[in-house]
Design a protein around this nucleic acid. Structure first.
Lengths: 219, 219
DNA sequence: ACATCGTACGTTATCGATAATGCTTGACAC
DNA sequence: GTGTCAAGCATTATCGATAACGTACGATGT
């Protein structure tokens, strides 16, 4: 579709395809997905589909029972809220590391922020989710910690963000603008501030939760 | 070899086999590993080996370049130290959640602690690594947060622990005993204490690092 | 009516073979 | 001497087919 010479593996293309199908509701939660059926529909063999299934199962989007079948995992409220404190901790670490490194500016982060605001005003929530994910992934990358990257990727942020923006009433423009103070904190040179801001950012759109209890902080 | 009726998939057996080969030094860091060669050696086809490779690459133990090859990742000092703050954050969260849940005792944790002390005194460092991993995995499980579990698993703790205990001078008995205050904190009912203790536990054997900077805490 | 066993079916898990890709080496032109 | 290109090689990526497994249903006996 995009190019006749695939730069990435078929398995990854299949994976992205399935993610989109789920995010857009064409694959409902709980619906069974069969490797051979998807393979036939996409014109591939079972092998890349199987690989895609494994990756999606690893981030909790699919659920496979050996020799029985695979189905779309029904993401409960708990699944969504569970991810929040973990993300908060991980991105908090990223913020601290970046600020310790003395970051003063980053063009890619700036680009993604502009992109977010632009598409949010245009009402394109899927594009907003894409840009938002790219922004946060960039932060993780800037931290330069492979373990951190792997842990973050394991949360399947793409999907969560897509789902959250596609199926909730969150205000897109407000969500886009909420990244400005994040950028400011990252470039402030203050590790404690950066960690706190990055962490708090995760709780911004989860009204029911207000973050973990912390010991009293002076100031 | 072990059983003629495999209860788990071949891919997982292959994965465990490769982990052991790496941990025991039979597969050196940087050494190339070819899917078909491993398949032949283990008497399977390429498919399960490939799946095992992907899982191991996901935890950073192998490194695959598309259409080129896979090699054992050379775990640098940085890789080991990178994992520490991430583990600290994740297990800290686990500690907080468990204490909030009001855990008073857990037989499995107690069993693993006994096991650790026993095998440590016997000098079996591999068994110590196994028990230690089981202990910490149990903690993550007790937290009851799927995102947390996935993030933790993504760090490949098994391998890291195995490598650390197999190739360093860490005192086994001391390492085993260091889990007692962890258990005490978990069952104390104090979320802040549990989070702090679980987190600090990760820095115990990393002399060069003393943990992240924190805001001044009253008391 | 109920329990037990066997059998048929759907799906994944595995296989063996082939296609596709990136790297390397060497020839060749300049 | 150096750069460019082409052919060959090593390895993965993908394919199509088969085997293995778990489930559900129905037959059978009590």
């Amino acid at each position: 579709m995009s190019s006749r010479l695939p730069r990435i593996t078929l398995a990854d293309q299949v994976r992205d395809h399935i993610v989109m199908e789920i995010a857009q509701g064409r694959l409902a939660p709980g619906a069974p997905v069969r490797e051979l059926e998807i393979a036939e529909r996409l014109g591939t063999s079972q092998t890349p589909v199987r690989e895609a299934f494994r990756k999606l199962a690893a981030v909790g989007l699919l659920e496979t029972r050996i020799h029985v079948g695979t189905r779309v995992r029904d993401l409960t409220e708990k699944d969504l809220t569970d991810a929040v404190p973990v993300r908060a901790a991980l991105e908090g670490i990223a913020g601290r590391l970046i600020a310790e490194g003395g970051l003063t500016a980053d063009d890619e982060l700036l680009d993604q922020m502009e992109q977010m605001e632009s598409v949010a005003r245009g009402g394109n929530r899927i594009a907003l989710a894409t840009a938002c994910t790219a922004f946060h992934r960039r932060i993780i990358t800037l931290a330069g910690n492979d373990s951190l990257s792997r842990a973050w990727e394991s949360l399947g942020i793409e999907v969560m963000t897509l789902m959250a923006l596609a199926h909730t009433e969150i205000d897109a423009v407000q969500a886009a603008l909420s990244h400005l103070p994040v950028y400011a904190a990252l470039t402030s040179g203050d590790p404690v501030l950066a960690e706190r801001e990055l962490s708090a950012h995760q709780f911004a759109f989860v009204p029911s939760s207000e973050g973990p209890p912390v010991a009293d902080v002076a100031g």
